[in-house]
Design a protein around this nucleic acid. Structure first.
Length: 220
DNA sequence: AAGTCACT
DNA sequence: CCAA
């Protein structure tokens, strides 16, 4: 199979009404759920990154993350030589992270509700920018101090979402995520291992050769 | 360590 | 070369 087929950015008619797919207990993929609101979501991203520029974080072992990261809300995840943690201020500017735009907060709540998680009010919205070849290794989200679900929104160029289990040695599924797709995981899947395979060089009408991922969490 | 790399 |  060619990459051109696998990563075709065209969105077939009817994707907005595609059924939810269960990935694991408490974990769902909603194909095209926020497709219609992609332009508004991208506008909100622009608003945030204007005040908190995307940057490449380093890992405690000295590695450099390929993904450009920023965020909004009360706390944002950061990584540096000292480790992983949530910070209330942008280490790069010393200012508080931008307020989470109401549009983002509300859409995240709607997505969580679709997966059966009522009353989700995120206090953290991470923005990940993937250029061609950028990736995110398999990991768990375990720096939050509460067990609320994770809401993940894909925008722009399609990518392969790596979905493992709660044990590191569990098999990893490869799931194509396209512009407007939403993945929600919580409950028994809250600590599932996940990541993103290297993003292919491809074009999307709204984002050029870029994929954005928005992830919403409650950190405390 | 969300990083890389070596090896099979 | 890539995947596990």
């Amino acid at each position: 199979m060619t990459q051109g087929m696998l990563f075709n950015t065209e969105e077939p008619p009817g994707r907005r009404d595609a059924p939810a797919q269960a990935l694991a207990p408490g974990a769902w993929l909603f194909p095209g759920l926020v497709h219609a609101r992609a332009p508004a979501l991208l506008s909100a991203i622009g608003e945030v990154v204007r005040r908190a520029p995307l940057r490449h974080m380093t890992t405690p072992g000295g590695g450099r993350m390929s993904v450009g990261m920023s965020g909004c809300g009360a706390r944002v995840w950061v990584s540096d030589a000292a480790g992983y943690r949530y910070e209330t201020h942008d280490p790069r500017t010393g200012r508080p992270w931008p307020t989470m735009p109401a549009l983002l907060r509300d859409i995240a709540g709607e997505c969580a509700q679709k997966a059966g998680y009522d009353g989700f009010v995120p206090d953290s919205g991470l923005i990940n920018r993937y250029g061609p070849g950028d990736r995110m290794g398999l990991h768990q989200d375990r720096d939050e101090r509460c067990d609320a679900p994770i809401v993940s929104i894909s925008l722009g160029v399609s990518a392969v979402f790596l979905w493992g289990g709660v044990t590191r040695s569990d098999p990893v599924r490869r799931i194509v995520v396209r512009n407007g797709d939403v993945v929600v995981w919580g409950g028994p899947s809250r600590l599932a291992w996940h990541g993103i395979a290297p993003v292919p060089q491809a074009q999307h009408p709204l984002c050029g050769d870029v994929r954005y991922n928005l992830t919403f969490r409650r950190t405390a």
